[in-house]
Design a binder for these strands. Structure first.
Lengths: 328, 328
DNA sequence: CTGTTAGCGCTTTCAG
DNA sequence: CTGAAAGCGCTAACAG
């Protein structure tokens, strides 16, 4: 049952197929010439032996590194405990598993963006997935390494990026709010240093300008506590506000709390919408209207690109779908 | 700024320190003899050169594998998207990063426990962290590999395990409920196949028996939907129930919903408590009383053990702390 | 305690 | 298209 015999090596496969090790290698990796018949023989032998290439040996020979590093930008190492980061990590670790590569998680301090360049020089690291990189951090990166880097969030001219299309997502939310009669729509954004905040904010400005309604936005930090505080601030500063859109469900939930506490009825007096569709969005009272963030698909796509060293279009956006619930 | 020169290799370090490569290796890894003075010279040289060992080369030479695999038991591959698993993965990937190893995530099908033995034979995998393993799965494992396996959840006689002390956690919750005057305390457990469910259930039985109150428990599956359904069932079957304890916050939140919907006041009529202290526990209305689950500490400890190949006590339990809030 | 000598398993020139 | 041979960078006997 349990295979107790030594794992098959490439030499075993070659012997069984009656070819040299070099040929077996070429046939299996399809790098370099190999006649169809040879390829078949080798493939069959490998299959029969249950051959699995040794990733360490391969990495050593090709100096390709043995894992992909996820580097998360943030003020403190605490970002590594963020649930969003955890989702990215799990999806990446799943996608990487089938290619026999591992994943490690690193903090990329905002105050020391050169840490990214340092990861770049680590021989154990074959590819880097940067989460929410700043342009500054990407710029420190040596040109020669840029094809081994992908970003979740904003990329750069030479670094592929994958993200949710939060511009369209934002537009959809604003339109939904407008269509249900709201005219004083405030927005709670993410931290100002976060590039993806800007895309959403721009979309917000477009949509409000187009509708001829005043823009009202205050930066948040994606936490519930901040959402609560900012919502309070908004209602004080602009008492006629009839809708609050938070770029992040947690902040929206915080806003919901603030409104409840001050006796403002949701959605009667003020509508509230979030972004991300986290589990708890469906569980709050009222249930939160939000828009999806397909984190797993995004992370998987980025990882696959990295593993295939595939030249990609610089920007790939994943659609966000509006999930209307009771809070609007 | 950016180091463009070739990464330093062990040979470079040895040359600079004026010793042989083998000596440099011994000095740096402290496996084998090395005089203090030599060790100092080598360490200094390594430091000066910014030497970082090549994990692939090391893994190849020691056949130690290049990553640790996290194997999660479950009915479907969907378990890999579970937030709890994501937290474990992120913590593991963080702990592993400092040792230059990666992490990959695998599904361990309940119907095919031999998958674990298969991972065991993979040369790329240096250690395995099994999440919620069944005794059956652990039993398929070859003896020779057991020191490379650690469990989060129940272990076995020969496999170290790390988990939250949910027995004491459960006891604390029941005592808390008793001390606030509850006498008809129902429990919603996890899935019956999950070994950790039994530990908590046993504690529940002890505590209720000791208090001379009737045990009432119904299996759940940790989801909010099931918590909702089970709570409804409980109130129908035992209408005088005055407290519900769910082994998992999501189920407790579902129970909260069910009670609200049927006009039962919490905590006035029925108290509700959960387990895990997830983010949303503090955000519900009423805020949920729960008890902590230090997942990150647990995962980090398990990972460290694996990386150090350190013989450990078979069982390590991490304390759970009661977090009293408004629902009790 | 230290240096020499073999590999670990794979990829990759380079001839043929 | 195929084989021989030379590494990739490190560890592990084995003499000295």
């Amino acid at each position: 049952m349990v295979e107790q015999r030594r794992e098959a090596t490439l030499a075993d496969v070659a012997r069984r197929a009656g070819v040299s090790i070099a040929t077996a290698s070429r046939a299996l990796t399809s790098r370099g010439p190999a006649s169809p018949s040879t390829r078949d023989k080798v493939t069959a032998a490998a299959h029969a032996l249950g051959y699995l290439p040794n990733p360490a040996a391969r990495a050593l020979a090709t100096r390709s590194g043995t894992r992909i590093a996820i580097a998360v930008a943030g003020h403190t190492a605490h970002v590594l405990n963020d649930p969003y980061v955890a989702r990215v990590t799990a999806a990446t670790a799943t996608a990487a598993a089938s290619r026999e590569v591992g994943v490690s998680l690193h903090w990329l301090p905002l105050h020391d963006p050169a840490e990214l360049a340092r990861l770049t020089g680590n021989r154990g690291i074959g590819g880097i997935l940067v989460v929410n990189p700043t342009p500054t951090a990407l710029a420190t990166t040596p040109h020669s390494a840029r094809h081994r880097i992908a970003a979740i969030g904003n990329g750069s001219r030479h670094i592929a990026s994958f993200d949710v299309d939060n511009a369209t997502g934002t537009t959809n939310v604003i339109h939904h709010l407008l269509s249900t009669g709201r005219r004083r729509i405030a927005m709670i954004t993410g931290p100002e240093w976060l590039p993806c905040t800007h895309r959403a904010l721009t979309a917000y400005h477009h949509a409000t300008t187009e509708a001829g309604i005043p823009p009202r936005h205050v930066p948040g930090d994606f936490t519930a506590a901040r959402g609560d505080a900012v919502a309070t601030h908004i209602m004080t500063r602009w008492p006629d506000t009839d809708a609050i859109f938070a770029l992040g469900d947690l902040s929206a939930l915080g806003a919901l709390d603030a409104l409840r506490r001050t006796g403002v009825h949701v959605p009667g007096d003020v509508a509230v919408a979030g972004f991300d569709d986290i589990t708890f969005a469906a569980l709050s009272h009222p249930a939160l209207t939000t828009t999806t963030n397909p984190v797993e698909s995004i992370a998987t796509a980025a990882t696959t690109t990295l593993l295939d060293r595939r030249p990609t279009v610089p920007l790939t956006f994943f659609p966000s779908t509006l999930v209307p619930r009771d809070s609007t």
